Simulated scan of single mutants.
Amino acid sequence: HRRTVPSVMEEDELCFPQFTNLSCRKLNRSQFEKVLVSFMLCFISVITVSLNLLVIISISHFRQLHTSTNLVLLSLAVSDFSVGFLILFQLMLIDGCWYLNDTMCVLYYILDVVVTSASVGNMVLVSIDRYVAICDPLHYSLKVTLKRARVCISLCWICSLSYVIIALRTNFKQPGRFNSCFGECVINVGFTEQVADLFVTFIIPVTVIIVLYVRVFLVAAAQVQAMRSHIAAVTHQHSRKIIVKDSEMKAAKILGVVVVAFLICLCPYFCVTLVGQDTLLNTLSSAFVICLFYFNSCLNPLIYAFFYPWFRNSIKYIISLQILKPGSCDANIL
């Protein structure tokens, strides 16, 4: 079982006082803890939603950014943007009670798993894109087109939705039937589904990402080193090729930082899931792991802001409202 609300409570205060014998009990938290956790969740939620919204607007509006790589980043921003809203649900769980109905409980889990799975899928697509760009640059424009990128992104979201429908199918018939008391949100996941979830959303994607990026950096480093050793003898045309290769290497490094941050933030969460989330849900380490999991969604736009000049330029256009001017979509922001 996966639980968002623990079944063992320590405080006498009930989630639903009108149901004395049926209600779950609230968590024993001090007022300071409640205020602190509420502030942190609100802060992360606002930052995540705001920054990813800037990424979505930037890539969607400016035509110069309509590339296959940025299209995947746009899909990733959409999933992170959704995570920012899902964080608000955690505000209800500060006292350990689920105040919405059982249908909303199932819907929350569906959105959570779909968005998480889509994020992992987008990371795999980013890795594949960089792999082709670095390891087969001559055929990159032929193999990676906007149309193919759209198809892959669509399949990523469709597969994520299909996956969660199959994994949580037993919870659709009668939402809330696995709850032991009122104020609890329990989703039943069988052992087979848990093993499949581990492989589909963690082991296989992470293995693919790591293998591709190791290959990318080895090839990119070898290419750049080989061309720089002959930089004094090459022509101006070849020099331009070196610049292109350097830009590809820079892009690979930036997206590599995104992937590394992704792994650092998500690996602890899946490790806790492996051990057993129910047993660790009330501990401080579990709270840290969950916060780290959500923090990854606001970390990606920060990485773009530090490394991508186009993102900083597009933010200036958006904040100064120049984006509302006619023809702003054709502005040179690169």
Rank of each mutant, 00 (worst) to 15 (best):
E13H: 08
C15F: 02
Q18V: 10
S23G: 06
K26I: 08
R29M: 14
C42E: 05
C42N: 08
F43M: 09
F43N: 06
V46H: 04
V49S: 08
V49L: 05
V55R: 03
S60F: 09
S60A: 06
R63G: 09
R63F: 01
R63C: 05
L65C: 01
L65K: 04
T67P: 08
N70I: 03
N70Q: 09
L73R: 10
L74D: 02
A77K: 03
S79L: 00
G84K: 00
G84Q: 01
L91D: 07
M92E: 11
D95G: 09
W98S: 05
Y99C: 08
C105M: 00
Y109C: 11
Y109R: 09
V114M: 12
V115N: 07
T116C: 06
T116L: 08
S117R: 02
V120I: 15
G121R: 05
G121K: 04
S127Q: 03
R130T: 04
V132G: 03
I134E: 02
I134V: 13
C135A: 11
L138A: 15
L138K: 15
Y140K: 09
L142F: 11
V144T: 05
L146W: 01
K147V: 07
V151F: 06
S154C: 11
I165S: 06
I165E: 04
T170K: 10
G176P: 01
R177L: 08
N179F: 00
S180T: 12
V186L: 06
N188S: 08
G190F: 02
F191D: 07
T192E: 12
V195H: 01
V195C: 02
A196L: 15
L198C: 04
V206A: 08
V206N: 13
L212W: 12
F217R: 01
V224C: 13
V234N: 11
K241A: 15
S247H: 15
A252R: 00
I254K: 12
I254V: 15
L255I: 15
L255F: 10
G256C: 13
L263W: 04
C267F: 12
G276L: 00
L281H: 14
F288D: 10
F295L: 15
F295V: 15
N296Q: 14
N296C: 12
P301D: 03
L302H: 02
P309C: 11
N313E: 00
N313W: 00
S314K: 04
K316M: 08
I319W: 01
L321C: 13
I323R: 02
L324C: 11
N332K: 10
